[in-house]
């Protein structure tokens, strides 16, 4: 019998988040080798749709457990651009969860969108692209991409469009959505400030007579500030969020990028 180090008989001291798991022993003398195909690389993304624009933002930290892999790994991508830099792209995809799956998903959707253009001689609509992304995700229903995606752009009416997805492709068009590690911190803030939830018109009555404030399309500069506020709050209270904030803004003129540093602690 092979020599077994006493420590291998204890429950594994390896961190549970590791992509490559250590050797686990289930019984003395038997060694079990395991490979986990998934990891969680943290980070958060959010999207807000406006009247004639859509902003999708994400932090640029990529982590494994308590370790930071890199301070600049974009989670927000241009889809269907003419070259590697993404010029000419009109659609934005953001992915959180397992970074490798996120990149694979981005590559796949990007080539699908290009194929569409070559075959039909026109750009794909955001609506069609959203449906295509759902199909891609569902095609891996039993070995899913471990990513939560949001997709944005300008729809056929020229209005800002935003779609959010679960891991297996169930999707919905929304006004705003926060996804990822700090989603639980950011989403209630967005409900309050974008959809004006729990806000009433002052002096409109008492109790049930109170009129809820109707959500109106927000100015682009205002939305940019909301995104910054949402992320500076998340950075403060979530260890997996930080380093940099990448904002991609889709308008009828194309996609503009704003990068601002975030706290690196």
């Amino acid at each position: 019998m092979a020599f077994i180090h006493p420590s291998s008989l204890l429950p594994s001291s390896n961190p549970s988040y590791s992509f490559r798991e250590g050797i686990k022993s289930s019984a003395p003398g038997i060694q079990e080798h395991r490979f986990s195909p998934y990891a969680d690389n943290g980070g958060s993304t959010l999207g807000i749709a406006g009247k004639d624009f859509t902003i999708i933002a994400g932090d640029t930290r990529q982590s494994s457990g308590y370790s930071i892999n890199t301070r600049y790994a974009p989670k927000v991508f241009r889809i269907g651009g003419d070259d590697d830099s993404g010029t000419g792209a009109k659609i934005i995809l953001a992915v959180t969860g397992f970074a490798a799956d996120g990149n694979a998903l981005k590559e796949r959707l990007d080539s699908m969108v290009k194929m569409y253009k070559y075959q039909h001689g026109k750009d794909i609509s955001v609506k069609a692209c959203a449906q295509r992304l759902a199909t891609i995700l569902y095609s891996k229903r039993f070995f899913p991409y471990y990513t939560q995606a949001i997709l944005g752009g300008i729809d056929e009416e020229g209005v800002g469009a935003l779609y959010s997805y679960d891991y297996v492709g169930s999707y919905e068009r929304e006004q705003c959505r926060a996804v990822g590690a700090a989603a639980s911190l950011i989403m209630p803030f967005l409900d309050n400030q974008v959809n004006l939830k729990n806000q009433y018109v002052p002096g409109s009555g008492v109790g049930h007579d109170l009129k809820a404030k109707a959500a109106e399309p927000l100015e682009q500069s205002h939305v940019e500030q909301l995104v910054r506020d949402a992320f500076s709050g998340a950075v403060e209270r979530h260890i997996e969020v930080g380093d940099g904030l990448q904002m991609l803004i889709a308008t009828k003129d194309g996609i503009r990028e704003i990068y601002t540093p975030l706290k690196r602690d």
């Binding site: 911190l185 950011i186 989403m187 709050g233 998340a234």
Partner: peptide
């Protein structure tokens, strides 16, 4: 979690 988010903002 939600409260940290709203309070921080």
């Amino acid at each position: 979690d939600q409260l940290f988010g709203t309070c921080e903002a």
